[in-house]
Computed example of a mutant assay.
Amino acid sequence: MPRGSSPKRERQYEHIKESELDTGKSTKRAEEIAARTVNKEPARHGESRTASRSSTHDMSSSRRGGQHSHSGSTGPTYDQLYNEAKHRNIEGRSKMNKKQLSSALGH
């Protein structure tokens, strides 16, 4: 955290860093994610002189909620298809891609 940051931002940084470490991220990566997240908030509120356009005009994480960058991928994953093919003893499954597995299983 930069010098002179508020106690609130310090707490946010530590909380985010700990959360990222709990998910298995390295210390360096957890610190980077925490710093970027905490430093983005002042930009959104007009407190930063050098904020990028994406920092000031994007949708806030709290408003975004459960939205993801991808959409429409509602089918089973490759691993799920492969495990089903294995359970059904489908020949050649190890050389198949997701589309081929789906076709072989009749999905």
Score class of each variant (00 low, 15 high):
residue 2 P to D: 09
residue 2 P to A: 10
residue 3 R to I: 09
residue 3 R to D: 10
residue 5 S to K: 12
residue 5 S to Q: 10
residue 6 S to W: 04
residue 6 S to D: 09
residue 7 P to K: 11
residue 8 K to N: 04
residue 9 R to N: 09
residue 9 R to A: 10
residue 10 E to V: 09
residue 10 E to Y: 14
residue 11 R to V: 15
residue 13 Y to E: 06
residue 17 K to T: 08
residue 18 E to A: 12
residue 18 E to Q: 13
residue 20 E to W: 08
residue 22 D to I: 00
residue 22 D to M: 10
residue 23 T to H: 01
residue 23 T to E: 08
residue 25 K to I: 00
residue 25 K to V: 03
residue 26 S to T: 15
residue 26 S to L: 08
residue 27 T to Q: 12
residue 28 K to N: 07
residue 28 K to E: 14
residue 28 K to Q: 10
residue 28 K to C: 00
residue 29 R to H: 09
residue 29 R to Q: 11
residue 31 E to N: 07
residue 33 I to E: 09
residue 34 A to D: 02
residue 34 A to N: 03
residue 35 A to Y: 14
residue 35 A to F: 14
residue 35 A to L: 11
residue 35 A to R: 12
residue 36 R to M: 06
residue 37 T to F: 11
residue 38 V to H: 03
residue 38 V to M: 02
residue 39 N to Q: 06
residue 40 K to P: 01
residue 40 K to L: 14
residue 42 P to Q: 01
residue 43 A to R: 10
residue 45 H to S: 10
residue 46 G to H: 02
residue 46 G to I: 03
residue 47 E to W: 08
residue 47 E to R: 13
residue 50 T to K: 10
residue 51 A to S: 10
residue 51 A to W: 08
residue 52 S to Q: 11
residue 53 R to D: 15
residue 53 R to E: 15
residue 53 R to K: 14
residue 54 S to E: 15
residue 54 S to H: 15
residue 55 S to Y: 11
residue 56 T to V: 12
residue 56 T to Q: 06
residue 56 T to H: 06
residue 57 H to A: 09
residue 57 H to G: 09
residue 57 H to N: 12
residue 59 M to C: 15
residue 59 M to G: 15
residue 60 S to D: 03
residue 60 S to I: 05
residue 61 S to F: 10
residue 63 R to G: 09
residue 63 R to E: 13
residue 64 R to H: 05
residue 66 G to I: 05
residue 66 G to L: 06
residue 66 G to D: 13
residue 67 Q to E: 05
residue 70 H to E: 04
residue 70 H to V: 03
residue 71 S to W: 01
residue 71 S to G: 03
residue 72 G to V: 06
residue 74 T to E: 09
residue 75 G to Y: 03
residue 76 P to A: 14
residue 77 T to G: 03
residue 78 Y to F: 08
residue 80 Q to V: 03
residue 81 L to Y: 01
residue 83 N to Y: 07
residue 83 N to M: 06
residue 84 E to D: 13
residue 88 R to I: 06
residue 89 N to E: 06
residue 89 N to S: 09
residue 90 I to Q: 00
residue 91 E to M: 02
residue 92 G to D: 07
residue 92 G to F: 05
residue 95 K to Q: 05
residue 95 K to W: 10
residue 96 M to I: 04
residue 98 K to V: 05
residue 100 Q to P: 00
residue 101 L to H: 01
residue 102 S to F: 08
residue 102 S to L: 06
residue 103 S to V: 14
residue 103 S to Q: 14
residue 103 S to K: 15
residue 103 S to A: 15
residue 106 G to N: 07
residue 107 H to T: 14
